[in-house]
Every structure is written in structure tokens, then in C-alpha cells.
Simulated scan of single mutants.
Amino acid sequence: MSLFAFAGALETGFLFSLVALGVYISFRVLAFPDLTVDGSFPLGAAVGATAIVNGVDPFLATALAAMSGAAVGLITALLSVQFRIMNLLAGILSMVALFSINLRIMGRPNLPIYGRATVFDRFGELGDFGLWRNVIALALFAIAAKLLIDWFLKTEIGLALRASGENPAMAEAQGVNNAAMIYLGMAISNALVALAGALFAQTQGVADVSMGVGTIVTGLAALIIGEALLRRRAPFFGTLGCLVGALVYRLFIAATLSLGFIQAQDLNLVTAIVVAAAVILSQGRGLGIAKGGMARLLARRAGGRVNAASE
């Protein structure tokens, strides 16, 4: 593997670790199988690229992209909570609708931003990082997101969110508003995915309406590989597994491509095999936890703090 390919694998790995963190919030913490990801990823790219083309500061454009992802997450949660549409179908409906919405935002199937200032250009002004500019910048984004999630999941609201995902009935009995937790968790999850989409468009120099295809599978691959490697389900190790899994997955793909074992058109097949193998491995090592006991612990802590605060 060449140095350029290695740097590219790290760059993509750190970027998709943001997607994995979003998937971790929805799938693992909230227990909400969300397919909105395949639409919110290109949504972030579309909003970020459109804003940059129209002269908006790249950092503000990236923030707007994350906010658009949060809005879409709220819509998916609304379909599930308010209109009683099952979680999987709610995500599919949002994903399908976003294809047309993204076309409307960009006004075309793809929108180039070559020659426009990006967050990476601004970061490059701090020093001459050369080949590693994007890698370092994306590593900072990924680590910052991981640390923020770690902190959030230890707060009163974070404990309530975890309790709601583990056992909604137990959480509700302890005074947790499950509907509010679904709205919050889905907003955070899709904001992270849209953030990754905006950054991806800036690394590639173009936003494309079809760039979200397979995003959910890639995020799941990183999440499951990280869990299989770390074998711990505590939030700190869960978020760390997202970073480790994304890097390992992308390095594996880059290595196999450089050795000629697979071709670019085989990536989806390889991803499916890797995810299946990681799931089988994780089951064999007993990564499952006692959900009832964990839910009671989290619900009591969250409910106790909420009750104390109300008093």
C-alpha cells in the first residue's frame, strides 16, 4: 500500500467514524433501526455544498448541514412517535423523500465546489500539513464528536436516553419521557451523519445526490467491527469502537484493493461479508448484555436525578 493510499484510508476512516457514531446513537443507544442515514448523508453534502457555493463561510455551511440532518432526524422520529409508523418504515420514507429534497436543494444531480474555500483550506492556514492535512482535520472532528457523546451520555438526559433505549417500559416507570428521548436521539444521530456528508463533499470537491448509497451499511460495519475488537459495551468503549472499527475497515479495504484481491465493484459484497463475519464473531464472544438489569440501573439514575431536580 502506498503512502497516498494509506493517508486516504485514514481520511475516509475518520470521516465515516462520524457516521458510525451516529449509527451508534440510533441503533445501540436508542434501539431504533434508522435507514434515514442513507438520505441524511447526501443531505449534509447538498446543504453544505450549496451554502459554500453561495458564499457562506465553510464552517457555518458545515454547521447548517448538521442542523439539516437533525431536522430530518426529528421528522423520522415524528413519523414513528406521533403517527405510529414502525421505525424501519419511517426511516425508509424519510430516505426516499430526501432523494427529491436533495435534488431540489442542489438544483441538479451533483454540485461541484472546486475552487471554493472549505474547512480543510482554513485548517491548512494553520500550518503546512501537506498530505496529512485532511487526515488531521478529520481526526480532530471525530475525536471531538466522540468526547462530546461520552460526556453527553453521562448527563441526566443522556442517562434517560440510554434507559429509554434499553427498556422503554422501565424507563417510563421511572419518569422518563420516551417520546422526547426518541426525538433527541434521532436528531443527534442524523446531525452526525449529515456532518460527515458535508465534510465528505468538501474532501471530494463535489456533492452528489447518490453519494449516500450504502452509508448505513458502512456505518454498521464500523460499529460492529469495533465492538468485535474491543468486546466492551460501555459507552466509552462503544464510541471508541466506532473510531477503531471505521479505521480498521477502511484500512482493510485499501489493503485488499492495493493487493488486487478485489476490484472497486466488489466493495459492497466485501462489506456484507465483513459485517456478517463481525456479527458472528461478536455473538461467539458473548457481547450481549443483560438489558433488563442495565435498563433498571440507568432508569433509576436518570429518574432519580430528574425527580431530585424537580423537587
Rank of each mutant, 00 (worst) to 15 (best):
F152Q: 11
S189F: 02
K154H: 09
L138F: 12
R305E: 11
N177S: 15
R250T: 10
G292F: 05
F27L: 14
S310H: 06
T218E: 08
A31L: 00
G238W: 01
K154D: 13
L131F: 12
I143W: 13
N190Y: 06
G73N: 06
A9Q: 14
N87H: 11
A49C: 11
I157C: 02
G69Y: 02
S2H: 10
A194Y: 05
G55Y: 07
T215V: 15
A7W: 14
A290K: 01
L161H: 05
F4T: 15
A187I: 06
V47M: 05
Q174Y: 08
S282N: 11
L184C: 10
S68Q: 03
L243K: 08
G107R: 01
L281M: 08
I157G: 00
G245S: 06
N178K: 12
L64R: 03
I188P: 02
A49L: 07
M170H: 07
N110W: 08
A295P: 05
R296P: 00
P168V: 08
Q204W: 08
P42W: 08
I289Y: 03
V244I: 12
A295V: 03
G292E: 14
V81T: 08
G260Q: 01
A272D: 09
F129Q: 08
A145P: 10
I75T: 07
V244Y: 01
L18D: 13
R84H: 12
G238D: 03
G185M: 06
I262D: 02
D57A: 10
